[in-house]
Design a protein around this nucleic acid. Structure first.
Lengths: 123, 123
DNA sequence: TAAGCCAGTACCCAAAAAGAAACTATGGGA
DNA sequence: TCCCATAGTTTCTTTTTGGGTACTGGCTTA
């Protein structure tokens, strides 16, 4: 278990380890959804505006292989598959929180400051 | 100033704002380098193993336009250009720290747990 | 006189990632 | 009999990313 799809070369610095686990356009957003609640495939598909089925499947498979996400299949007939976070997946919460806080703070700044530039001159 | 290259559609959730600012393969790693110290172009180029000049230039330009990075040109003759973090750039520290901590913790787990699977059965 | 240094640009081609759309399986309901 | 739903897979096309090579400018060193 754990970051299986991640290629073995250069574990280098911890930040890179994390980047390999949740880098890319979609994984952080998938995590955001799954922190809210357990979700089914089509729920995720609808929530993540713009993602294709292929990408969603692919990202979920990688996250499952990395031990971040648990995939539970119910043997029904319209198929039912639920995705939830594993303990390892939930341990990413501080990162999501930090990203949430920064994005929010940035938005507040943008609407309070009168767009004054700090840099004296460069370029 | 501020996330200039970021396209205006759907500010949606704060996590997405952050993703647009530091998403992609290189920006987090560039930030990691610049948190250590102010660096010159070739210092960054050597530190970020695998990045091409083109990519480095491109990412730095976007980060500059987004107000995360300050580019300072010294009118010397072998040219000297220094890259440093702006206040906004430094405000990303909690995210970098959280990513660092997770990567480190993951590494410890991997070497302490006897690779026991939690999932009863799925797939 | 020529080559070296730094911080890039410019151009072109190859590879990888992402996306769009159609297709599949199964069973229930109209 | 046809259609619907879910959770994908397959195929094809487009976009993004990566890489190579060459070029610049002006001072310094050989």
């Amino acid at each position: 278990m754990g970051l299986a799809h991640v290629n073995p070369e250069r574990p280098t610095c911890p930040v890179e380890t994390t980047l390999r686990a949740i880098g890319g356009r979609w994984k952080v957003l998938i995590l955001r959804e799954l922190f809210q609640e357990v979700k089914r495939f089509n729920q995720l598909h609808r929530a993540l505006d713009g993602i294709t089925q292929k990408m969603l499947t692919q990202q979920l498979r990688e996250m499952e292989a990395d031990g971040l996400v648990l995939r539970t299949v119910y043997p029904q007939v319209p198929p039912k598959v639920e995705y939830s976070l594993t303990e390892l997946g939930r341990s990413l919460k501080p990162i999501l929180d930090a990203m949430h806080d920064w994005g929010e703070q940035f938005f507040e700044r943008r609407h309070s400051l009168p767009t004054r530039s700090t840099s004296a001159e460069s370029r």
